[in-house]
């Protein structure tokens, strides 16, 4: 019989009960997954949580990160130190620089090109602006200026309009841009394109033309010298004007004592004679109008 109280042999090949159970537990798939994936994941999250628990460390971390980003962005490779404006007149160039309001030198990461472009394009005289940061730290602004083609007289004053009717600038007197035709009336800027067509069609009577008046934001009147007016319809005004010019060329209509030619109704142009001419006409026809209102 073996000794019951004897210590077990020093090197027993058999696993202890604990080791045996441990191995069996380790071979359990759920436990294995938990240990190999769950525990490290939990540990990492736990440590990060502990680290981020204090406000100071969180702020320090964020500050460190931001300063790192700043240091990178402030590198000389990314600095913009020059602003070049191309395609703008000197006065416009100054106002563009003013509108962009950039305190150079500045990192190219800090320049919002889209916003700068929008700021430039709010200027009346700028039709289109292209911005890009060129190598060498140059911010290049390519500007397309608006070309004034019409002078618009409105309650606010005299404005120069481009062919789309967009305001280019204000002028003090008509004499500043005597070379451009004049339009007037509310809503004239919205129909600037039509006005330009009418002006082109009115070339034969151009020396006599004073300007165009927008009537009721709807139709045009041509104002000539001697107070003559050509009232154009809402629809197809160019055609009506051409017709009036044809009448003038055939019968010297405008040279006569006529106050206005009303072309608003296409089928029935109406002439309005000056009072003297009207009296003479009636007299020649033997109509006495001394008693009537006419």
């Amino acid at each position: 019989m073996q000794s019951l109280s004897a210590t077990p042999p020093r090197r027993d090949p058999a696993p202890s009960r604990a080791a045996y159970r441990m191995q069996r537990l380790w071979l359990t798939p759920l436990f294995r997954t938990l240990m190999r994936v769950g525990l490290p994941a939990f540990g990492i999250v736990f440590l990060i949580g502990i680290y981020l628990a204090s406000d100071a460390r969180r702020a320090e971390l964020a500050g460190g990160f931001e300063s790192m980003i700043d240091a990178f962005q402030q590198r000389p490779e990314f600095m913009v130190s020059l602003l070049s404006v191309e395609g703008a007149s000197p006065g416009l160039s100054d106002s563009i620089r003013e509108a962009m309001a950039l305190k150079l030198p500045l990192s190219s990461f800090d320049i919002d090109l889209g916003a700068a472009r929008q700021r430039i394009e709010t200027l009346d005289a700028v039709a289109k602006a292209d911005l890009r940061v060129r190598s060498g730290g140059v911010l290049e602004v390519k500007v397309t200026e608006r070309v004034p083609v019409i002078v618009w007289r409105s309650a606010a004053g005299l404005a120069l309009l481009d062919h789309d009717g967009r305001r280019v600038s204000m002028i003090q007197t008509r004499q500043d841009r005597a070379d451009l035709p004049l339009v007037a009336g509310d809503g004239a800027d919205l129909a600037a394109a039509e006005a330009l067509e009418l002006l082109a069609a009115a070339k034969p009577i151009l020396p006599r033309l004073r300007g165009l008046v927008r009537m009721g934001e709807r139709r045009w009147d041509l104002v000539l010298d001697r107070g003559q007016r050509i009232l154009l319809p809402t629809e197809a005004p160019v055609k009506a004007l051409e017709r009036a010019i044809a009448l003038d060329q055939a019968q010297k209509l405008l040279d006569r004592d006529v106050l206005s030619i009303d072309l608003r109704i296409q089928d029935r142009p109406v002439l309005r004679l000056a009072p003297f001419a009207l009296g003479e006409l009636r007299r020649s026809r033997g109509i006495d109008t001394s008693e009537s209102d006419l």
Partner: peptide, 18 residues
């Protein structure tokens, strides 16, 4: 019991399954 444990543990280790 120890001998059974030895055999079972070794076989489990080889099979890599519980």
């Amino acid at each position: 019991e120890r001998a059974i444990r030895t055999a079972v543990q070794a076989a489990q280790k080889m099979a890599n399954v519980r």
